[in-house]
Design a protein around this nucleic acid. Structure first.
Length: 873
RNA sequence: GGGCGCUUAGCUCAGCUGGUUCAGAGCGCCUGCCUUACAAGCAGGAGGUCAAUGGUUCGAAUCCAUUAGCGCCCACCA
């Protein structure tokens, strides 16, 4: 068989993914085996694959593939989220580009268009995940607006309403004046903004003077209904209970006292605008103030403002200034930096707005959800997020779940003409319920709530609803796959999603939704900037896959991502991944190139090499499994990488490789093939494609009905430390000889090496042939002094090789430097050993070790001194 | 303002409840090699007062305190 010099990823990857799908290796059905389940964090239906997805899904694929090899019935459920605000925004924009205004359509027309759009553009991301090698059970692909899922969401709303946990209320909400919808607190981002602080006079109605108030939003003056001061503020105490005129509109409003006012800020006087500020609203409620709303839903001034009617809030802010100036109300304007709330979706400043919304009471739901994390039922990796979680859960507020959109799950509430309402699973049921309130009601008089539910109100039941466990709480799937095992997600959505899934899981299954949560970091570019479209610093994962192969990209991503930390992504790491694939490929080429001689005995070098690598492999397996147990995936990969590249390729293969043209004995060949196979198994979760290909090429027959992904994961209990220690010494010995040769430019192989110590006699004799082969020298001898030698230390022994000329000064300098170091080292050890407290208190083991250090160092110093003497003569 | 975390080589990070000659790895950098698996490679090399100060201890990169710098989360002061 002829193998190409370079590994060709694209051909191999396309071939295998197709076969895997055909063979349904990813598909799972409940059986007698133990399940291992992961549900994907559903990406937005409109989304396309970005580097964050690559990281997140590579990790999930690694976990699920290893679980599959460990013998679990592994099931990774994929799917997408309808993402109401984001998707509706895109659909509206798309309509607009065709000259269609959303509001010119009926709800049904709009939804029809939206579904068409979804069928056409949705789900691209799932196809992209296949390129990455994701081993999802595609037969279980779920969309949050699939029929059964939709009904599940509605069921949950009705159920929670009937339990008294959902209520409708006037509340100050975060209003997005562009999207024309309320947002949850989590969808608001605060940005430091340069703005101005305006100082405005409010004249007392009794003509006894004025108060000055500092505000960043002068346009809301028109909606003021009080002025507040701190009750303990001596400057203003005497004014409490008096009245002032609101500038321009000349409305009389009271001066009230409230602890909320900070006497230190601004002038110590606060204008109270209950309709347009959350805190003012609270104050207003307390003091029973009038609420005057001066904004339209898209944040223009309405008739209530009396001035600047029809102007946008920012226009009005500018235009009210000259008016105030003219009336003599404005005293000064200062530059000021403050935090302004922006909509995460549309990036416009939020307008606090009073409106009727639906809320979920979360206090009762959050208590058990906090408990399961604190008591370790659910583990967070890394665990630092437990604190963040606890802090948030303690201060959790009711969840505003209604959104003024059409794309999503329509709130299952029907209103009667008189304003009463019923909550039901569907219109029929609603009508039946409504008839009880009004027996003469006609069906057409019922009107369903126009709003939809927050997207997270559907995704919080994801781990249950993908198995249809809400509508059919006892079906086989949900009973088998739930609770799931791992969740891999970003810390940004710890509250949006993770916390809420825990609440829903406990409420609807009485069980946590997952046992382990792995938090990934943010993918940044190599300069540390967050990857974003606007910066243009985010590579397209598909381009990277074309260039380096999916295996290479997976490697590159994983190589730089320690658990829970942000990762600085550098394309060079994908290159490193591709190079690794090529390295493995060439190791295969080497092995496949050999001719096998079935009667040839195994020579000493190979016997020893095989016995060493056998132990080394066990040691590596133990380490790799240990890292997996701690979810240190990147460390596990590094360990596999080192085992393959350093131990297997650089040492083992070089040791056993026959001279050109010579055959290899059957024992060596078989051992090597078996080692190679085990290494491919260890690497498979990380690089699924190349490992599958090589697994097949290592077999006697290339049989595509076979697969590496269902072979048992390698395990080991213990390894022989002595063999590994001996070999490590031998490798050091070899490296030192190579180093000496490199230093003195010796390329010959016929030189002799000398060493001067008896302690390592046995090891050196045992592994003599290995040294000769790898260090490329003729012989190793003891205690012979030559005239011209170059020398170096390996642990406590001195080795020397003959050279033709020596730069004596340079050598002396080197030795003196080393001597200095070891003298200092010895002094430290001596000091310790003379310290009575140390001898009394330190454990015996430590003392013994110090003594050994002492002896070794004395030995080394003697050797160095001898050498020095030689040079001085 | 409240909470959490970080600071170890040029870069990214390991280093578990103090004690293995403990100061490490990968990348980058430098030197020499196109050696019949691989130049997408091989061999060798240089680089660090473990942020600063003080304390605990026989012993501190590791534990404690303070300081400086950085990051994240929460709250949102008009």
């Amino acid at each position: 068989m002829k193998l190409a010099q370079h590994y060709k990823a694209d051909i191999v990857e396309n071939k295998w993914y197709k076969i895997w799908l055909e063979k349904k290796y990813f598909h799972s059905e409940p059986n007698e085996k133990e399940p291992y389940t992961i549900v994907i964090p559903p990406p937005n239906i409109t989304g396309i694959l970005h580097m964050g997805h690559v990281l997140n899904n590579t990790l999930q694929d690694i976990l699920i593939r290893r679980a599959r090899m460990l013998g679990y019935n592994a099931c990774w459920v994929p799917g997408t989220d309808h993402a109401s605000i984001a998707t509706e925004a895109r659909i509206v924009a798309n309509l607009k580009s065709k000259g269609i205004d959303k509001h010119s359509l009926t709800r049904d027309e709009f939804m029809k268009y939206a579904w068409e759009w979804k069928e056409k553009h949705g789900g691209i991301i799932l196809e992209q995940l296949k390129k990455l090698g994701a081993s999802c059970d595609w037969d279980r692909t779920t969309f949050t607006m699939d029929d059964h899922y939709y009904k599940s969401v509605i069921h949950v709303f009705v159920d929670l309403y009937n339990k008294g946990l959902i209520y409708r209320s006037h509340r100050m909400v975060n209003w997005d004046p562009l999207a024309l919808t309320a947002l949850s607190d989590e969808e608001v981002i605060y940005k430091k903004t340069n703005s101005k602080l305006y100082y405005v006079k409010y004249f007392l109605t009794d003509d006894s003077g004025y108060l000055t108030i500092a505000t960043t939003r002068p346009e809301t003056i028109l909606a003021d209904t009080a002025v507040a001061v701190n009750p303990n503020d001596d400057r203003y105490k005497h004014l409490i209970g008096k009245y002032v005129y609101v500038p321009l509109v000349k409305r009389e409003i009271p001066i009230i006292a409230d602890q909320y006012v900070d006497p230190e800020f601004g002038t110590g006087c606060l204008k109270v605008t209950p309709a347009h500020d959350l805190n003012d609203y609270e104050i207003g409620k307390k003091h029973n103030l009038e609420i005057i709303d001066i904004f339209t839903p898209d944040a223009r001034l309405n008739e209530n403002a009396k001035f600047l009617i029809g102007q946008d809030r920012f226009e009005a802010r500018e235009n009210i200034i000259p008016l105030l100036e003219k009336e003599g109300n404005l005293t000064k304007i200062e530059d000021y930096e403050n935090n302004v709330a922006y909509s995460e979706r549309t990036d416009v400043p939020i307008e606090p707005r009073l409106s009727l919304q639906w809320f979920l009471k979360v206090e009762e739901l959050s208590k058990p959800a906090m408990q399961v994390v604190l008591d370790g039922t659910i583990k967070f990796y890394p665990d630092k997020f437990i604190n963040t979680y606890r802090h948030w859960m303690k201060n959790i507020k009711d969840w505003c779940i209604s959104r003024q959109l059409w794309w999503g799950h329509r709130i299952p509430v029907w209103y009667l003409p008189n304003g009463e309402f019923v909550v039901a699973h569907n219109e029929e049921e609603a009508y039946t319920l409504a008839l009880k309130k009004n027996p003469n009601l006609k069906k057409i008089e019922l009107h369903q709530d126009d709003d939809v539910l927050d997207t997270w109100f559907s995704s919080w039941i994801w781990p249950i609803a993908v198995f249809n466990g809400i509508l059919q709480p006892n079906n086989e799937d949900i009973n088998y796959y739930y609770p799931t095992n791992d969740l891999v997600t970003a810390p940004e959505i710890l509250f949006f999603w993770v916390a809420r899934m825990i609440m829903a899981g406990l409420e609807y299954r009485k069980q946590v939704p997952f046992y382990n949560v792995y938090f990934t970091g943010i993918v940044r570019d190599k300069l540390g900037r967050k990857m974003s479209k606007s910066l243009g610093n985010s590579p397209d994962p598909l381009d990277l896959i074309d260039k380096y192969g999916a295996d290479g990209v997976r490697m590159g991503m994983l190589f730089s991502s320690p658990l829970g930390n942000d990762l600085l992504f550098d394309e060079a790491l994908c290159e490193q991944g591709r190079n690794f694939a090529n390295k493995i490929w060439n190791a295969l080429r080497l092995v496949k190139m050999w001719k096998i001689d079935p009667v040839k005995p195994t020579d000493t070098i190979n016997v020893k090499s095989i016995s060493w690598f056998n132990e080394q492999l066990k040691a590596s397996i133990i380490e790799i499994n240990h890292y997996f147990d701690e979810y240190r995936i990147s460390d596990a990969l590094k360990s596999v990488y080192k085992t393959i590249w350093d131990y297997f390729c650089s040492w083992y293969l070089e040791l056993i490789k026959p001279n050109y043209g010579e055959p290899v004995d059957a024992n060596t060949y078989n051992s090597t093939i078996n080692f190679f196979k085990t290494l491919m198994q260890l690497l498979h979760p990380f690089m699924p494609f190349i490992t599958e290909e090589i697994w097949h090429l290592l077999q006697d027959n290339y049989n595509i009905d076979d697969t590496i992904m269902l072979t048992p994961w390698p395990t080991a209990d213990s390894y022989d430390e002595n063999i590994i220690n001996d070999i490590n010494f031998i490798f050091e010995f070899i490296s030192t000889v190579r180093s000496l040769k490199a230093q003195y430019n010796i390329t010959k192989e016929d030189i002799e090496v000398y060493y001067n110590d008896t302690e390592y006699d046995k090891v050196i004799k045992d592994y003599e042939e290995l040294i000769l082969k790898m260090a490329q020298v003729k012989s190793i001898n003891k205690n012979k002094q030559l005239k011209n030698t170059a020398e170096a230390l390996v642990r406590t022994i001195t080795i020397s090789i003959p050279i033709t000329e020596t730069n004596i000064e340079e050598e002396k300098e080197k030795i003196l430097k080393e001597l200095d170091y070891y003298k200092g080292f010895l002094a430290n050890v001596n000091k310790k050993l003379k310290n009575e407290n140390f001898l009394k208190k330190a454990p015996d083991k430590v003392i013994e070790n110090e003594k050994k250090k002492q002896q070794d160092t004395i030995k080394k110093i003697e050797s160095l001194k001898k050498l020095l003497k030689k040079y001085e003569n």
